[in-house]
Design a protein around this nucleic acid. Sequence first.
DNA 1: CCTCCACAGGAAGCGCAGGAGT
DNA 2: ACTCCTGCGCTTCCTGTGGAGG
Length: 401
Amino acid sequence: MIESIFERELRKESLFTDKNKISPHYAPEELPFREKEINEISSLLAQALKNKKTDNLFIYGKTGSGKTVTVKHVTNKLVSFAEEKNALVESIYINCRTHNSKYRVMLKLNQELYPNENFLGYSYAFVYESLLEYCNKTAKQLVVVLDEVDLVKDLDDLIYALCRSNDELKNGGMSIIGISNNVFFKERLDPRTKSSLCEKEMVFRPYNARELKEILKQRSKLAFKENTVQESALNCAAAIAAQESGDARTAVMLLQRAGEIAEEKNLRKVGFDEVEQAKKKVEEEIIYSLINSLPEQQKLVLQAIAWLSSQKKGVQSFSVNPKTANALFSGEIYDTYCLQAKELGVSSVSARWFQEIINELEMYGFITTMQSGKGFRGNTRLIRLGHDANSILRAIKKELN
DNA sequence: CCTCCACAGGAAGCGCAGGAGT
DNA sequence: ACTCCTGCGCTTCCTGTGGAGG
């Protein structure tokens, strides 16, 4: 029985030559349609090779527009070039989703710089000092890449500390590259932080359908066997991803899943239909992985929001203002959240902390909020779900069993 | 105009955990 | 083994804001 399954799987002819190369994590050698950006970042970072501090750079653009992969590409080249020329340059990449406070970022920096030592439990001041010491001792230029920088809670303090360190250092220096996919994030920054972080700025335009198709073509050559991917599949995946705000990650995932579906069906080629089928799968996967990383209380609040918006009936019919159509008041969300938590036998947080959760959910892009403005309940926020309510409910249910 | 409602968000502080110093 | 320290999630308390309604 089991052997026959193994047997069948073994005999199945794979469509892939190297499946890894069509996964969203794979960084190809060539980054099409980003030559201009690569050149700009390179000439900026070249200053570090001359042992000068480079201007801080702030990059924003929607998800899947190639920000992270471009920056990583350039910094990798920079470091290997520096090694060849004996220049004192080091680059550190930090994802602020997991390192979301100035302390955690500092900690991570030190752990990268001193891989054999443990800094857990030391005070912030100590960790900061040891970072300075590293620069002073080695006289290196550090390029610190802060990905998803908008998720750092005390970002003003962090940027201030990193910038100020340059004044305290006798040797070496520190430059920051901040990456964010939140367009409004910059406007909310403290003016001082803004001016120090955004010395140079870059916007990554989303890819259009034609560019996405080229990217997919390039990737499919690497990952699939020859002539296994039909033109129609590429077109379809590119079109879907272009609609989803030009996200190359989605495009690549679509083709990957479509390939798997085609294999399951024992097809020789990946076509239009497989991509169509992959679409639903990918959408759910993206939502699921986003929700997966959320703490329990945030999941519960999100569940309440999703539940309310799926239940919402009739109310929007007499809301004259299109701004408020389909939107929820934070008060009603809090009540539902408390109720649902009680039903599950879980404790709920205070109304104050609930506000913070709403803010976090907004930062992660699950919801959009706006000030109520004229005509509605004074000073309150209108909250709207950014994704399909039912998919979110399903994903959370899966999470909470 | 005044008061109340419903909310946003700042400030202070509390308990816990994990580590350092002794 | 103990005390002290720090970060962190969270609560409590408080002030501010703008519409609704008398």
